[in-house]
Design a protein around this nucleic acid. Sequence first.
DNA 1: GCCAACGTTGGC
DNA 2: GCCAACGTTGGC
Length: 161
Amino acid sequence: MAPRARAYWLMKTEPDVFSIDDLEQRGREPWDGVRNYQARNFMRQMNEGDYVLVYHSNAAPSGVAGLGKIVAPARPDPTQFDPKSDYYDPRSSPEEPRWSLVEVGFVERFVEVVPLAVLKADPTLEKMVVVQRGSRLSVQPVTLGEFKHVLGLARAKTRAR
DNA sequence: GCCAACGTTGGC
DNA sequence: GCCAACGTTGGC
């Protein structure tokens, strides 16, 4: 078996709820609560070792806050079965789970968030899903080129200080 | 807090 | 299967 190529992703989180700092403190986190089919389908394609740009949404500024890594592949998200959870889905069942989660491990917290405005102003990233108008997808694929370029932007800030 | 853009639901 | 109404996301 040829090793599967590593893939790259962007996952959004609201830092008021769960931030890159929270991920750093915990080390790894089950990424529960995703309730969008497209996002779920991307999570089901993820493999251990894939890298994740951790994106802060509804933040000041919104942008890429750090780097994570997939440490466990998709499995049923238990919150869908829990009537007390905000993410409870009465139409899902353990026999036929509708929603999945992956586990994300902490890799790196950027010195500064790379703001969405910077991504949008960068011609190299014009195809990136997160800069598209009205993009709401909370789990997105990222190309290797985009991934490297965003890391470069984050590191440029580090070197400049 | 506003609101544009989007995804989902459900009547027909 | 269409599409209006509704709820949500997320930038600003």
